[in-house]
Design a binder for these strands. Structure first.
Length: 520
RNA sequence: GGGGCGGUAGCUCAGCCGGUCAGAGCAGUGGACUCAUAAUCCAUCGGUCACGGGUUCAAGUCCCGUCCGCCCUACCA
């Protein structure tokens, strides 16, 4: 079970040039559920998210829009990225921007230390640079252009011409850390999850690591290299450091010691930055490597990957406007095996909303609350006198799923945790059908049994409220109120969900997941 | 070119070291029930397990090849 230990979880910081789509929201929601769950289990929890605001692409976009890059970033943070967190009900503890003073100053501190310790050298770099990708491309990543770009080499991802750049750069001796990285993957097999992601990382590092160019001098929108202000720090090197600058690196040792190391959650497309470059940077600085890096899958829409670069995304509001934030959270975290790619479709979303949330959980809550209102005048019965083995079985299941869910969360298997809780939803619906409290209510002689059945259902419902509160914070909050239970549902120890304290009276409950009329 | 992953009921997916492995959920169909959001519960229809070979007493489950989708990673220019 949980102790008071620290749990620090991060999402990637969003590149402000993008428009939020459900892929971004998926990562956020996953991190948020893990954070809420750990927090509710008594761990000293911290969830960080934020924005990545430097780099040539943002400079160019801002210029094209006639504003400074800072103004551009401010606008997008205020109008797109922070609102996204509200849209999907994310309760992050902090939001870092790479333009924050606390970040920039300590990126410089970090870099200076690496420089002083001999991990950085001056070199010459020539290569094809894709502005869209913010990185130099290998020949294999380029294709011949078509149409207006015929005859030129273009980036395979962006289909835009690359530029041949030749610049003096500062290089990070990443190659020196290959052996230590391999040892890390070896001794901590769960450092990179899932297994498939780990295998790719290992084979990548085994094939040899090159040093990393970490500065740019062709533009100036970035953190200045402290010993050479004609250079700015490479945007990825800058961005990765947010995970430590946000928790006190360089300026609050106590806070840093309390939080670090973090569990990182990333899309598998940026796994390498987090599982190779980032640990190497930390090793060079003499800091602890992350607790782990989990690379989740992509959301497939119509069989195709949703793309950050191609802006083929679906906006989260399209879903939450109709189904609500709880349904958004539930759908993506339960329907998709966390770590694997998952198919999204409106049909599937609507079907699961209806079958699982409305008819399964929501209706269960309605019928139990309604029966206590009707048969017990709203008084929560103790039910002690009429218990049978059936009630003991439900109680045992509550304990079992509570335990199973928590074990799943500890392994970051969110979908398993939800599935465990859902076993209780199904069991309670079945229990009610078998026990037929509505029939018991017609016979005064069965009064004790009726109260026992309703008490058992009531208890089970409360356990569900606690267990599902990280995933369905809004609905379980309403349910908690209807149950008349003391305090808030978020205050209940989730690793002992089945031990919640019942209330004395139930209150009316509106449908938690109203039926949705679906177009098409 | 190498490496890896996937192709199982209409849909989304489980099936570890070969022997009730042909499954689950949803959808569909039939029935029961009425506390509840026309809900719930029970039963049931449904698959040549991508394709072709092979190993074996026995293969979605191992081997070889082919096709399709995807990921990682080279080389030549």
């Amino acid at each position: 079970m949980a102790d008071g230990s620290s749990f620090y979880i991060t999402t990637p910081i969003f590149y402000v040039n993008d428009v939020p789509h459900i892929g971004h929201a998926y990562t956020e929601v996953a991190a948020d559920v893990l954070a809420r769950w750990n927090r509710q289990a008594g761990r000293d929890t911290w969830m960080l998210t934020g924005t990545d605001e430097h780099g040539q692409k943002i400079l160019r976009t801002a210029t094209a829009n006639g504003v400074t890059p800072q103004e551009w970033a401010d606008k997008l943070v205020a109008e797109a990225w922070k609102p996204l967190l509200d849209t999907i009900d994310v309760a992050n503890d902090d939001f870092i921007r790479t333009t924050d003073e606390r970040h920039e100053a300590n990126v410089q501190r970090f870099l200076q230390k690496l420089y002083d310790d001999g991990h950085i050298y001056t070199g010459e770099y020539e290569g094809y640079y894709c502005v869209g990708c913010e990185e130099y491309k290998q020949q294999s990543e380029l294709v011949d252009g078509e149409g207006e770009y015929a005859g030129q080499l273009v980036c395979a991802i962006h289909s835009k011409p690359v530029e041949l750049l030749h610049e003096k750069n500062y290089f990070f001796r990443m190659s020196a850390f290959a052996d230590r990285l391999l040892e890390l993957y070896e001794t901590r097999p769960d450092f990179v999850q899932p297994e498939s992601a780990r295998n790719e990382v290992v084979s990548f590092v085994r094939s040899g690591l090159a040093d990393l160019s970490i500065s740019r001098s062709t533009f100036d929108w970035g953190v200045k290299v402290p010993w050479d202000e004609s250079h700015v720090v490479y945007v990825w090197f800058d961005a990765l450091l947010n995970y430590i600058t946000a928790v006190g690196y360089g300026q609050d040792d106590a806070e840093f010691a309390r939080r670090w190391p973090a569990q990182h959650l990333v899309g598998k497309d940026i796994l390498r930055f987090h599982a190779v470059i980032w640990p190497a940077m930390l090793m060079a600085a003499g800091l602890e490597v992350p607790r782990g890096v989990f690379g989740h899958g992509w959301l497939l829409v119509g069989g195709e990957k949703m793309s950050k670069s191609k802006l083929t995304g679906i906006a989260p509001e399209q879903i939450t406007d109709t189904f609500g934030s709880d349904a958004f959270r539930y759908y993506f975290l339960s329907a998709i095996h966390f770590g694997q790619d998952g198919s999204f479709s409106w049909e599937d979303l609507a079907a699961r909303y209806q079958a699982e949330l409305a008819n399964g959980f929501g209706n269960l809550a309605s019928r139990v609350i309604a029966m206590i209102g009707r048969y017990c005048d709203g008084q929560v019965p103790s039910g002690e006198a009429g218990r049978t083995d059936a009630d003991a079985a439900v109680a045992a299941l509550e304990a079992e799923v509570t335990d199973a869910a928590w074990r799943a969360i500890e392994r970051l298997h969110v979908h398993e945790a939800i599935a465990a809780a859902w076993r209780l939803v199904d069991a309670l619906n079945g229990y009610l059908t078998e026990q037929e409290p509505w029939a018991l209510a017609k016979d005064p002689a069965q009064r004790d049994r009726l109260e026992a059945v309703l008490a058992t259902a009531y208890r089970g419902l409360g356990t569900l409220a606690v267990l599902l509160s990280p995933v369905l914070p809004k609905a379980t909050g309403k349910l908690w109120t209807a149950l008349g239970a003391p305090g808030t549902v978020q205050e209940q120890p989730i690793d002992r969900a089945h031990e919640w304290t019942p209330g004395s009276r139930v209150a009316a409950l509106e449908p938690l997941f109203p039926r949705v009329e679906v177009a098409e």
